[in-house]
C-alpha cells in the first residue's frame, strides 16, 4: 500500500507527491512518528524555534487521511 506524508508547519504545507510503499496503517503511523521526531531533532540541534503544533497528515492511495501525528504527541518533556 502506498502512503503519502504531508507536513504542515508554520510555513504551510509540504506535500508528499511520491508516496511510500508500506505494509499498512500501523507502519505508516510509525513512519510518521519517526519523521516528526527527526524534524524536531534537527530543529532543536540547529537552535531553530520548535513548532509543536506542526503535524504530519498521512493519506492512503485514494487521498483519505488515515493518520495525523502532531509533533507534541511524539516527545515527552520533563522539567525539574
Amino acid at each position: 500500500m502506498k502512503f503519502f506524508f504531508h507536513l504542515n508547519n508554520s510555513t504551510g504545507w509540504t506535500h508528499d507527491r511520491e508516496g511510500h510503499e508500506l505494509d499498512g496503517v500501523s507502519q505508516a503511523l510509525e513512519t510518521a512518528v519517526e519523521a516528526a521526531r527527526s524534524l524536531l531533532c534537527a530543529d532543536i540541534a540547529e537552535g531553530k524555534p520548535v513548532d509543536l503544533g506542526s503535524y504530519i497528515a498521512t493519506d492512503d492511495e485514494i487521498g483519505r487521511e488515515v493518520a495525523r501525528v502532531t509533533f507534541d504527541e511524539v516527545v515527552t518533556f520533563h522539567s525539574r
Binding site: H15, D16, H20, E34, A35, S38
Partner: peptide, 22 residues
C-alpha cells in the same frame, strides 16, 4: 532517486528530505 532513496543516502526521513528540498 526518490525522496526515500535520497533520505537513505543522507540519513534523513523522506518527510525531512521533502521539507529540505522545499
Amino acid at each position: 532517486m526518490t525522496q526515500e532513496e535520497l533520505g537513505d543516502a543522507v540519513g534523513l526521513t523522506p518527510v525531512h528530505v521533502s521539507r529540505t528540498l522545499k
